[in-house]
Design a protein around this nucleic acid. Structure first.
Lengths: 211, 211
DNA sequence: CCTGTTTCATATCGAACGCTATGAAACATC
DNA sequence: GATGTTTCATAGCGTTCGATATGAAACAGG
């Protein structure tokens, strides 16, 4: 069983394209144009690979998208670690929002969030794709909630803090920033929105709170 | 020129379907399934009208969607009036967010926001449809900004208040709540998120601000 | 009733969709 | 160099897409 991990090809004609690079191109196209509204023809163009080769390498359009989406979202363990290493839950979320604001307005990538826009709606046939995107969000939400609970336990946040609401707010602001980015809002706008939304956290210095 | 307003038909076979009811059905379908991912075939089914009749009554798919979107968004003047009549900008926005939270989780309508999800992405061919949705958001944003500026002038909000940021945050939370709603979040979750997001406004009673 | 006008149901149109059958081409192994 | 395996490029599968041509049907006015 020790040779199971590397599925090495020993025989046959070698692949003529970089699978990873092709997946990256597909991911960017889904990001820009959405799942159902990106055609196989679009993908063959940007990936530089013919349709039969795409199907041989990735299965079908649905599996290609799911793989592209996982590539976009990254490893949840990395986010979990980043949240664990942050000084506080608040720092972790603030950092997440700032990174999202920058990602959604990057010059080298489509605007907005792939998770938010690529499968926002669609036919019944694509319901499982939307569910997969929802699941990605649930994972992120869980990471945020647990980190907040940890800070409550540690006395860094007041006991009456509601982890779910703060996590859902962070998620809503993130996905909402995606819409703003796609509408053309520039990076500073998103950064300001992200920062402003953190003022909802308990213990925030609301400058004019005494007004 | 006084007979120009009612484009009354005097002759010809009368329409065999209720144009307004058919438009309502189309709106609900676009709301549920999106612009490009709703087919004419889907529309003929839910509207109970054959394709040629749809084209005769609404033009083409794009114009039908735009008309459905305007029906969904409502008259901007109504929102403007509601904002003008509200005691404060804060009350107006809080009310808008609460109404959105309820609308996005209504039992008789699809979940989420038509503006947020029906044209989140798509082909280049539908770029003008996305732009039309963006324009609707810009109008709402303008109404919010002006109402906030009025409160600043009146001394109800501190001079250092940034109207754009608060308006963009309200917009982001609204569109973000749409994603949460489509993911299955129930109404109380959205209401809590809406309320929590208002804590970013200056002068908010952050209960644990002194913690 | 006849004429003019508009909408009706039926039957498609060409194009694009996701996907695949087919046989030649490019490798490792023997 | 012959064989086995895998990928290659070409061509096209059946279906669905948005949109329409066509002629009968249903009304108003004369």
């Amino acid at each position: 069983m020790k040779e199971a991990s590397p599925p090495r090809r020993k025989t046959g004609r070698p692949l003529s394209f970089d699978r990873d690079a092709a997946l990256e191109k597909a991911m960017l196209t889904f990001w820009e144009s959405g799942y159902e509204t990106t055609s196989i023809s679009d993908l063959t163009t940007v990936m530089g690979v013919t349709a039969p080769s795409i199907y041989a390498a990735f299965g079908d359009k649905k599996r290609l998208f799911l793989e592209a989406m996982r590539r976009y979202a990254g490893d949840p363990d990395d986010l979990e670690k980043a949240f664990a290493l942050a000084p506080t839950a608040r720092d972790a979320v603030a950092d997440m929002l700032e990174k999202a604001a920058r990602l959604f307005t990057g010059d080298a990538t489509p605007r907005g969030c792939l998770l938010a826009s690529a499968a926002a709606t669609g036919s019944k046939d694509a319901a499982d794709v939307r569910e997969a995107a929802a699941q990605e969000r649930r994972v992120i939400r869980g990471i945020i909630v647990r980190r907040i609970e940890r800070d409550i336990q540690a006395g860094l946040l007041p006991p009456e803090t509601t982890p779910h609401v703060l996590a859902d707010l962070a998620l809503a602001v993130t996905q909402g920033m995606s819409v703003l980015a796609r509408d053309g809002a520039d990076r500073n706008v998103l950064l300001a929105v992200a920062r402003m939304s953190m003022a909802s956290w308990p213990g925030s210095p609301v400058e004019s709170n005494t007004f």
